[in-house]
Design a protein around this nucleic acid. Structure first.
Lengths: 210, 210, 210, 210
DNA sequence: CATGAATGAGAGTTCATTCAT
DNA sequence: CATGAATGAACTCTCATTCAT
């Protein structure tokens, strides 16, 4: 690993840039984020961005690529254990937190076809990335199979409703910035989870009876 | 009605600008929309924008103000009649169409605090504007009271799930632009409506039995 | 005289425009003065300016032409009477007041050769206009001839020093806007008058001895 | 010294911009001076202005800051030597030259309160800057103390008359641009100096008798 | 590979001027 | 002659990108 004279490695710089861009983009949106600011926040020269990334779009895509795996890792590898309601509430509040970064990022890409093509390209290779309900669908399917939640509804639809509600909730909060909204939105998540479980119908197995 | 030298009326110009901006913003997002392009698309000189609107933000807010009432008008004034499922599917597909314009518009505002403050200001005066689930909540409440849908879930939560699912669906489609997705997304809406009705629980009154 | 339906005469509009332009230009300088503002201040439509004046420059020149005669009228027609010192102090304080309008006007013309050519043209036809020391020179010459002030210096030079001191004084005040400076600058004028009289040398005739 | 790709040094660019702005502003005034022109005259891209200066105002203020020290340096450090008349004539002709740059610069600032505030701010820290008669006052005071000029008048007033006459002279020349006026105005300066010395009264010490 | 001054296309905005009414 | 919406050239300033060091 090459160590530079300032004590940072090259790999470091790339990561620092992604980290800085991620933070700034979550705060101010993509449009309000200049390369100068990102470089300064990362503690590197502006030109360094162009050594590490092809252009600004490439940096954005790398930020997106860095966030998604974390986002998807919210879900348990083994869905059979624990109370589904408790788990879904946890997943929901985690999702709220993650969405606060993801939404400004994605929103800034809407108007730029090239960026969108890039993100599409990158996501094609990764399972479930870009389809945030995908992992959740698998979890719900497994939970239905185990009888831990009802099987009265398509788990894919349940997952979309769950994610969609939270997505919309966070989006509107970012847009309107109502000071009254509770920061984590736990109560909101709980009511959504209850509605999702109600849509699924009665479980075959009592929760917590493992 | 005063006719200007180019054959258009004054009122016309303002409307044409809003119409052009609306179209371009839905296509390319707010950021990818220059005043020059908007003026050209409206068949008007760039300076005319500044006769009709204080600045570009004011034009954006006017576009938003023009879209929202149309969006809210989707809902029936009298919720007691018609099959709830049929109606909700209609509302859902209308919402999909409206969201295709609203989402690029709103997304472009996320990074700009001043725009957001402006939209907040304008919406404060209008009932339900900016809270797209509000009108729907009222409809569902009335439908529950009439026994046309089940009352096993908070109608506000049902409305959020309904709107949220569609919002997220359209957003991701705009982002990923999967050519495979059906344009109107009717099938998607139907499955969401079914899940919402399932979450509400069994209706007291048979649908269509009026 | 043609009377318009709003009760103003055409001549009125021209005067009102000149008056409004004069006020605004003294306040904000020529550059900070738009045709829209001037028209509004005059209570007429913007287009009316172009009925009354060829263009904005023509309006400026008309303002200049309106101010100068007033400025020159400060001097007494018959210089033989009154105490020269008292009179010069009066002339000086009047000049300060006039300069507060003239300097922003002239300053705005410096960078525009066409305006300058216009003002040169107009002033060529009027005696002493544009040579503000000219009238004063004549007064001082007469006062010297009458023995009311000393004849130890060229009256033209004395006049230039007198006017120049005040011009510079007002200019710097407009530039720096020192709040400490007394508004009328009477004390400053008195000291300048004393120095001018000192430069002229002792008078042959005692002041006030007529 | 870092050499940039076009062969100029960085320090060079800043100086070249100030030099170009100074020349153009003296020629055409501040208002008639675009950033595009200044950049072109300096042989630099327009954007470079904004690397070196916060905005156009900052460039103006830097030009002003560059001119003033030169202007003040006209005065001798040791006022006791040389014939006062000869020296004052030299100072006067130097002042005429300097004023040809200073007046267009200052005139352009009259209508812009922010610029004026900026120049006030910068001048507060430098002795005598912005009070062009200040240094001259000190010289005249010393000359009076040495008996080389008369002490019959307040040296501060004498200095103001001297500077004021020249200021007004140059201003009107810039405004009217009479081709007949001699370029340096030496004769004018001589007559002013004579009047100033006359106002001061007879010297105690014969000129040139050191 | 790191740097950051230099670049210039292009953004939003202003404003003197025109002209159909 | 009065009006004021329409006009578009020209302005200041931003910012992703380049490249000599």
């Amino acid at each position: 690993m090459l160590t530079q004279r300032n004590g940072h490695t090259t790999e470091d710089k790339r990561e620092r840039l992604i980290e800085a861009a991620r933070r700034l983009m979550a705060e101010r949106g993509v449009a309000g984020c200049t390369t100068k600011e990102i470089a300064k926040a990362a503690g590197v020269a502006e030109g360094t961005i162009y050594n590490q990334f092809r252009d600004k779009s490439d940096l954005y895509l790398s930020v997106a690529a860095a966030i998604m795996p974390e986002f998807l890792r919210r879900l348990p590898d083994e869905p059979g254990h624990g109370d589904p309601r408790t788990l879904l509430v946890k997943v929901g509040t985690d999702t709220i937190k993650a969405m606060q970064e993801l939404i400004p990022l994605f929103s800034g890409m809407l108007g730029e076809p090239e960026l969108r093509a890039g993100v599409r390209e990158r996501w094609r290779s990764e399972r479930n990335v870009g389809k945030p309900h995908g992992g959740l669908t698998e979890y719900l399917l497994a939970a239905q199979a185990a009888g831990r939640i009802g099987d009265g509804a398509d788990p894919s639809v349940l997952a979309r409703m769950f994610i969609g509600s939270i997505f919309h909730h966070v989006f509107m909060r970012l847009l309107i910035n109502e000071p009254g909204l509770e920061p984590t939105g736990r109560k909101f998540v709980e009511s959504v989870v209850d509605a999702v479980l109600a849509a699924a119908g009665p479980a075959k197995v009592k929760a917590g009876a493992e």
